[in-house]
Amino acid sequence: MAAPRFTAPTNDFFSELKARINDHFEQKGTSPTGNSKLFTKAIILVLGFVGLYVHLVFFTPPAWLAVLECILLGSAGASIGFNIMHDGAHGSFSESKWLNNIAGLSLNVLGGNVFMWNTKHNVIHHTYTNIDDVDDDLDARPFLRLCQSQKKYKLHKYQHYYFWAIYAFLYIYWIGYSDFHKYFTGKVGDFKIAKMKRSEHISFWAFKVLFAAFFIALPIFMVGFLPWLIGFLVFTMSTGLVMSIVFQLAHTVSETHFPLPEAKTNKMEEAWAIHQLKTTANFATNNKMVSWFSGGLNFQIEHHLFPKISHVHYPEISKIIKKACQDYGVEYIEFPRLRTAIYSHIMHLRQLALAN
């Protein structure tokens, strides 16, 4: 499928919104990138992750504690992805380019690849959000049907029950298969990936080997195969479940839209900014713990409209965006609590399970 085109804006909504956001940062005299709060959080998360890893591998805690620590390790890994890697890959972690690059490389340390992520997430997902056959985040086939335009299989009848298990395996599928598939095919879906430099090829393989050494070989040597296997599955499944829930609540809920381009013109009905607001939802934005852990990805509307702004500023600029939406009569989709967003996601899956 060729990349669809967006309709030209019919009003000055987004230009006015950008002006209001720029005024906000100018009046405060602050940078839209990360600040000391983000850097402190990054240090806490990295130290916590390293501490858990060292204790698990070198100090051999009792089984019950090891399982708990593997869950915490997976959650910490997901939070590093949300807070450090995500901002770094978008260039919003710091004003320094090399710090952003280092933050982005945290994904490589955790077994992924930031080069592949930039194409899949920054380019495709952020541009063509919730457009089936374009946005790779919607492709969980054949296991899940995430929008009406996708083919329905018999197993989808129960997807609102078993989706938790599918999500739990996202991380291991991502680092163990999906990255390699993109690397060898040179594509994300139907989109060609930019030609990789020699340094990017080296980085891809070097970090994959490094991950295998630290998360497979060394733990097996230290604790044995079976304890490693159980711990590795608990770790990766915890990471996958947390990551999936946070990202799915932002786009695949009953209230969001899944528009398709007009067949003849391959043109979207809405302008890009309106499209983002119709396909994106916020959740639990008053819950400071959720915001801290998820790297502000519960403020997904703010992130999709202004991905170059660090998540530490989302609570402030959300007020500006809400006001602009009210002024221009644009819907702003938001769930007050985490559980209401999860319920909406389950109902969305159920609806698709029942619909033809």
Rank of each mutant, 00 (worst) to 15 (best):
I216C: 15
E334P: 01
Q148M: 13
V67H: 02
M116E: 14
A194F: 06
E69S: 08
V246T: 15
G91L: 00
G176S: 08
R350T: 03
Y53R: 11
I102H: 00
F258R: 04
W228A: 04
A89V: 01
N287A: 06
N113L: 08
H311M: 03
K308T: 15
T239I: 03
F232N: 08
F14R: 07
F184T: 14
G111K: 01
T340H: 14
K152L: 05
A281T: 04
A281Q: 04
N130M: 02
F180H: 15
N11W: 00
F39T: 03
H251W: 07
L144P: 07
I84E: 02
L45R: 03
A76I: 14
V46E: 03
V253M: 11
L229T: 03
F49I: 02
A206H: 08
G104M: 00
I301E: 09
L146T: 14
A281G: 00
T236P: 00
D139T: 13
K151N: 10
T340E: 11
S310T: 07
L17T: 13
F163D: 05
H160W: 09
S344N: 06
F207A: 06
W292G: 05
H55K: 14
M237D: 04
T129L: 06
V330R: 14
E95R: 10
S254N: 10
Y161E: 03
A217Y: 13
V57C: 05
Y53H: 09
P9E: 03
F82G: 07
L47Q: 05
K18E: 12
K267E: 15
L155S: 13
S254R: 13
W98R: 05
E26R: 12
V57E: 02
A206W: 14
T30M: 04
T280E: 02
T129W: 07
P259M: 13
R141P: 06
V242G: 04
H125A: 12
T280M: 05
H304S: 13
K192H: 10
G296M: 02
L107T: 01
N122G: 03
A284F: 10
W272E: 06
G240P: 11
D136Q: 12
H160R: 03
V290N: 08
F25K: 10
H121G: 01
L47P: 04
N286G: 13
A103Y: 00
V109C: 09
Y162L: 07
M347Q: 15
S199L: 13
H275N: 11
R141F: 10
S94V: 02
Y183L: 11
H275M: 09
L105Y: 00
Y161I: 10
L338D: 00
F169N: 06
F214M: 14
G104A: 15
E262K: 13
G81Y: 05
R145E: 05
